[in-house]
Design a protein around this nucleic acid. Structure first.
Length: 473
RNA sequence: GGCCCGUUCGUCUAUCGGUUAGGACACCAGGUUUUCAACCUGGUAAGAGGGGUUCGACUCCCCUACGGGCUGCCA
């Protein structure tokens, strides 16, 4: 039998897509894409109180930025509530579920007492075996009639065989008293109806898998392959929370990380393929497998993220970088590039991409090509332009008029001029940089000359050579 | 409280009973160097603790410690 792989990502729209969710989506995507399968997206919005359309939009944006494309339409779980109710009643008819008339207040009171007495808080409904003839005409929930004897065994592709004692599990609510389904029921019905073959999700669902298995069994449906991933922790080893800073996947875009680098880094968090560290998404698809997933939670390491991203930026094509840079600028609320800036950036990209780990760094170092005259110089640049240096720069310009505009000849011209003034390239480089970039940090001065061209270079040198008022502060 | 999962350098990890326990990031030292970065060379650094099983355990079993998850008419 050759049943096609179907995976899904099923976030609840109660907030942005966080980094852990992003990784879960990535693993599902890699698994399906690497096997010619389908990767589906379902929004688990059955909690009407907390679900928002804004959150759904943010999740979609996050996935799109990460480059995780899904197959087919986005499924709204809430829209399928009638189907869920139908299954709940089907279970009732099969004797796999029952109506429970206990009120929430009663259950809460029971749990409060149980907790105070340090007893199990597992709720046992008195209606489990009640004669339907005794049912009152009151609101009720439909609860699963879960087996009390024996074990429910989960064969998990990551966690191995996990056995749960059935007497530790309660009769979970499948249909609320208002007729809406709970997650526990809806997730099973949807995964079945959507033909999901592999459920890859956070290990906070491992316990749930046992109860969900009972639903599959009650309905006579095939149980999917489970794969419960360890959660991601913050750099301090604690559960991820707001105080760890950037958490929403979109914040990573704003920080300037390329999507391919994020995918690479995230895939290595909890999964490995031998000693491979840096790889493309195509390689990841080919290599990704469930048995390469670890069982221990991993911590976020921003240094490593940066390092990986730096390699992806260096390896990307200029066109791809420019394209992603546009998205970065928009994500950080900056001015879009003018045509001239985009053009300059393209010409400069070759000397920019090797020295930037993020788009934030790249744009910083691209300052020289994005600005037009007159440059506005920062403090460090200003102080590099002392009167003596300005004189040398002015003296350099005539030699540039006829120079062949190549690195070698430019270097020779600068070295020669420096020597004539009793100094050397090392000393002249900073003033030159200040003149061309207006900054103390930039690509190589010769790269800047090549990118800027003869006219612009000479003009900037003459601008800098002009005596200006010394900074006073 | 009950149930479940986990624990190799600071971090991510390799190892699937026999290795000088390997790699990457970070860090340190040196080299290269016009800034930042990149790059080159070398280095520091790990099997939570205790019991077993075995000729031999990081690898298998048990206990403890620590961390995490679940225990909702949330997902």
């Amino acid at each position: 039998m050759n049943c096609p792989v179907v995976t899904r990502f099923a976030p609840s729209p109660t907030g942005y897509l966080h980094i852990g969710g992003g990784r879960t989506a990535l693993f599902n995507w890699l698994y399906a894409r690497g096997r010619g399968g389908r990767f589906l997206l379902r929004i688990e919005d059955t909690d009407r109180e907390r679900s928002t359309p804004e959150a759904t939009a943010a999740i979609l944006r996050g996935l799109t930025w990460l480059g995780l494309d899904w197959d087919g339409e986005v499924v709204s779980q809430f829209a399928r509530k009638d189907r869920h109710a139908e299954v709940a009643h089907d279970m009732l008819a099969r004797g796999a579920a029952y109506k429970c008339f206990c009120t929430q207040a009663e259950i809460e009171a029971f749990r409060a007492v149980a907790e105070a007495e340090k007893r199990s808080t597992l709720f046992r409904s008195p209606w489990r075996d009640a004669d339907p003839g005794t049912h009152p005409d009151l609101a009720y929930v439909i609860r699963m009639k879960a087996p009390r004897d024996g074990h429910t065994v989960i064969e998990d592709a990551v966690q191995g065989t996990v056995r749960f004692r059935n007497d530790q599990l309660d009769d979970m609510v499948c249909l609320r008293s208002d007729g809406t389904p709970t997650y526990m029921l809806a997730v099973v019905v949807d995964d079945h109806d959507m033909s999901v073959t592999h459920v890859i999700r956070g290990d906070d669902h491992l316990n749930n898998a046992a109860r969900q298995t009972m639903v599959y069994q009650a309905m006579g449906w095939p149980v999917p392959v489970w794969a419960h991933l360890p959660l991601i922790h913050g750099p301090d080893g604690k559960k991820l929370s707001k105080r760890h800073g950037a958490l929403g996947i979109e914040e990573y875009q704003a920080l300037g990380y390329p999507a391919s680098g994020m995918r690479n880094y995230l895939s290595r968090l909890g999964w490995s393929h031998g000693n491979d560290e840096y790889f493309t998404s195509e390689q990841a698809m080919a290599w990704f497998d469930l048995d390469g997933i670890g069982r221990a939670p991993a911590r976020l390491d921003f240094k490593k993220l940066e390092s990986v991203c730096g390699q992806h930026i260096a390896a990307a094509t200029d066109a791809a970088l420019l394209h992603e840079l546009v998205g970065f600028l928009a994500a950080t609320g900056r001015e879009p590039l003018t045509a001239a800036q985009a053009d300059g950036l393209s010409r400069a990209m070759y000397c920019l991409k090797d020295r930037a780990k993020t788009f934030a760094e790249l744009i910083e170092k691209a300052y020289f090509v994005l600005q037009s005259r007159p440059l506005d110089r920062d403090r460090n640049a200003q102080s590099a332009l002392d009167p003596a240096s300005r004189g040398i720069l002015r003296d350099l310009t005539p030699h540039l008029h006829n120079a062949i505009w190549q690195r070698q000849t430019l270097e020779a011209a600068v070295a020669e001029t420096a020597a004539r003034h009793g100094t050397n390239l090392g000393k002249l480089a900073q003033p030159l940089r200040a003149a061309l970039a207006g900054r103390a940090v930039s690509p190589s001065v010769f790269d800047m000359m090549l990118v800027l061209g003869r006219e612009e270079t000479i003009a900037r040198l003459l601008d800098a050579a002009k005596p200006t008022e010394e900074p006073t502060g």
